[in-house]
Simulated scan of single mutants.
Amino acid sequence: MMPQNELRLLPWSGPDGKPCYLSTDDSGGYMSRLADNIEAVQLGMAADLLEQVSAVLGDRDAGPDDVRRMLTELTGALRNVLRVANSRGHLLAVSGLQAGALRR
């Protein structure tokens, strides 16, 4: 559960690539579950892409266009993974602060 003033960074961008945030104290609500599901898909896609990149890098016949395409896809996946990591890291930090406050 997040304090009312805490915002969750969502795993998608808004208009003009700006970050989207969710303000809720219901981690089981529709938008929270949707964000959790999208994060899981993004992480799974990044894992799949990592295998594809390894295959292309190991292919001596792969041309510059193949490598450029993989780097473009890898850049997008890395951006998504970092957004998930930042969001989850922030949520963990907030949870840790709440747990510390409860122990006092």
Rank of each mutant, 00 (worst) to 15 (best):
L22H: 11
L97R: 15
S54F: 02
V56Y: 00
D65W: 00
G17F: 02
A46E: 11
G29W: 12
M45D: 13
A93H: 11
A93E: 10
D36L: 07
G100E: 14
G96K: 09
G89A: 04
C20I: 10
E39D: 15
Y30C: 05
G28D: 14
R83F: 00
R33I: 13
P19C: 11
W12I: 08
A62R: 06
A77T: 03
P11G: 10
R69G: 01
H90W: 02
P64L: 09
P19Q: 12
P64W: 05
A40L: 14
V56A: 02
N86G: 11
M70H: 00
H90R: 09
L78G: 10
R88T: 01
R103C: 08
A93Y: 09
R68W: 00
L49Q: 01
S23K: 15
D16N: 10
H90Q: 08
M70S: 07
S23H: 12
L71Q: 11
L22R: 10
A101L: 12
D36P: 02
N80C: 12
Y30S: 06
L34R: 14
W12T: 08
D36A: 15
E39P: 00
V53Y: 05
T72R: 08
P11T: 08
I38E: 06
A47E: 11
T75G: 09
T75Q: 13
R69A: 13
A93P: 01
V84C: 13
D66Y: 00
L97H: 14
A47T: 06
Y30H: 09
L43R: 03
L10P: 01
G100T: 10
L49Y: 03
I38Y: 11
I38P: 01
L78R: 07
V53K: 03
M31N: 11
A99Y: 09
A46W: 00
L57N: 14
E51G: 03
K18A: 11
G76C: 00
R79Y: 08
L82C: 08
S27G: 05
D59I: 00
G44I: 04
A40H: 09
S95M: 09
D66W: 01
R79F: 03
L82N: 15
T72E: 07
S27L: 14
E51M: 01
A99I: 10
S32E: 10
A99G: 04
V41D: 14
L10A: 06
D61Y: 04
G100D: 12
V84Q: 07
R83M: 11
E51R: 03
A93I: 00
M45A: 13
T24N: 11
R88Y: 06
D66S: 13
V67R: 05
N86F: 08
V56Q: 00
W12N: 05
S54I: 06
D25I: 07
G63M: 01
L10M: 14
D26G: 01
G63S: 05
A93Q: 10
Y30I: 04
A85C: 05
C20S: 08
A46T: 02
L43W: 02
L34K: 14
R69H: 11
D26R: 15
S32V: 04
Q98C: 06
L78A: 08
N80S: 15
E39M: 15
D25Y: 02
P15S: 12
A62C: 05
A77G: 09
C20H: 04
T24L: 07
